[in-house]
């Protein structure tokens, strides 16, 4: 991510008062990142409709600054909404790799958390965390939009505990 975030925090640390600069930069950057989560919508099954419903009039994710983008390059967040089959897994991995660096994953619903009702199927990946790292698991089959909103709130809390010394990768709970 360039010299600004890769090198500057470690150089700043050695100066007196550098810690204050880093923590206030942390606060500001984390505030902006937490409040501007642009999701790449990745609807795979019925959970996608709950995700769509969460974006629509009644639940309105736009209130929190969640603003769906069609392309992975501009997205910060990926909702994996639905059953991930083994055939689809490489595509998910590719889309995740195409996203720019501070990137987060919300696994939505039983299928993407653990395989759900298809736990014994030969074609289903038993949890997307076998393919990409997941930040927040939202339980439910499918989870209601309220649950998804709570998942986003949890992710915002997690982002706010991050520091630029981690290079944007949230390592707090890992």
């Amino acid at each position: 991510m360039g010299i600004l975030l890769d090198e500057a925090p470690y150089i700043l640390e050695n100066f007196p008062g550098g810690g204050i600069v880093i923590t206030s930069a942390d606060w500001f950057i984390n505030w902006s990142r937490a409040n501007s989560l642009w999701p790449l919508t990745f609807g795979l099954a019925c959970c996608a409709f709950e995700m769509i419903s969460a974006n629509m009039s009644k639940y309105d994710l736009d209130r929190f600054g969640v603003f769906p983008r069609p392309t992975p390059r501009q997205a910060d967040l990926i909702f994996v909404a639905g059953t991930l089959t083994k055939k689809m897994a490489p595509r998910l991995k590719k889309l995740y790799d195409q996203m720019g660096e501070p990137k987060y994953v919300i696994s939505m619903g039983s299928c993407s958390n653990t395989g759900g009702p298809f736990y014994d199927s030969y074609a289903v990946v038993k949890g997307v965390d076998k393919v990409i790292p997941v930040d927040v698991y939202v339980a439910g089959c499918p989870p209601r939009p309220e649950n998804l909103i709570e998942g986003i709130k949890k992710l915002q809390e997690k982002i706010k505990k991050d520091t630029i010394k981690n290079n944007g990768r949230a390592k707090i709970f890992k």
Partner: peptide, 30 residues
């Protein structure tokens, strides 16, 4: 019939675009 940005910055999400721009500034440049 939605509300739009409501939470960022307080009054009707006035700081939404500032947050967006700062986030874009610190995002990976691919």
């Amino acid at each position: 019939s939605r509300l739009g940005p409501m939470h960022v910055g307080g009054w009707h999400g006035w700081a939404q675009t500032i947050a967006d721009m700062v986030k874009l500034l610190f995002k990976e440049d691919i």
